[in-house]
Design a protein around this nucleic acid. Structure first.
Lengths: 122, 122
DNA sequence: GCAACACTTAACATGATGGTTAACTGTAGC
DNA sequence: GCTACAGTTAACCATCATGTTAAGTGTTGC
């Protein structure tokens, strides 16, 4: 359907991994796993100022990891469900690629040593 | 055995995700999926200088994503097989946590609407 | 030994990141 | 309307990241 459906751009991954490369932001994501929360709730566990939290949220939002809402004077943050997928997919692909390669290498070595058992290593 | 075996510290993840938050470094990792390579080989596809590549490799090494070797005057880089696991695990945990939560939410809502079908929303 | 090669290290410029405090915006509630 | 509350924006600062070029290190090969 969409011609650019698989277009997982390098920039998206930059933003995603970049957003996750900070323990405060990861903790916020973990916290949001328990459900929507307000900024003050999210800020509570951390020893940093509200503006700092506010910017972390902006980074997460920019990476499309969270969406924001407004209830009265409270502003909520919640996870966008499939947003981690691109990162997880990239990692899975890499792991698959190199385990495949290691398997092939094992096969190759097994074959080699089976075919030429007397070959010595200098 | 090791008392700190499961101690996947926040710093490790900082380094891991940080290392992956750059498209050049991700490309290098992808490239290394095909096997060990020298610095010049790794540098070839990129329009940046060798020192820049050298430092990217140092970042990857520091994040324990690659190991380095020396063959004569060539210096090789190769992937360390399980190094992506902490990142993949963290992502998997998050995805599991929040899909669980969404499931519980669904159940809850289904139960609620089943039990109190006439309840209106103000 | 010495020149060429394959890098790495050093020194530097520049822009991004993560934190601060102070001031601003917008909603709630009397 | 005014005050308090929840949060964002602005201005600033220190540090880190990423690139550059120039110089240094160590190995090869004649």
């Amino acid at each position: 359907m969409l011609s650019v459906a698989i277009e997982r751009s390098a920039e998206d991954l930059d933003l995603l991994f970049g957003a996750l490369a900070d323990s405060t932001r990861r903790a916020i994501v973990e916290r949001l796993g328990a459900g929507e929360a307000t900024v003050t709730e999210l800020a509570a566990p951390f020893p940093i100022s509200l503006p700092a939290i506010s910017r972390h949220l902006k980074v997460l939002e920019h990476a499309k990891l969270i969406t924001r809402s407004q209830h009265g004077r409270w502003r909520g943050a919640r996870l966008s469900p499939t947003s981690l997928a691109p990162a997880a997919t990239w990692l899975a692909q890499q792991e698959q690629l190199w385990t495949e390669r290691l398997d092939r290498l094992d096969d190759h070595l097994a074959q080699r040593t089976a075919a030429e058992p007397k070959r010595g290593r200098p």
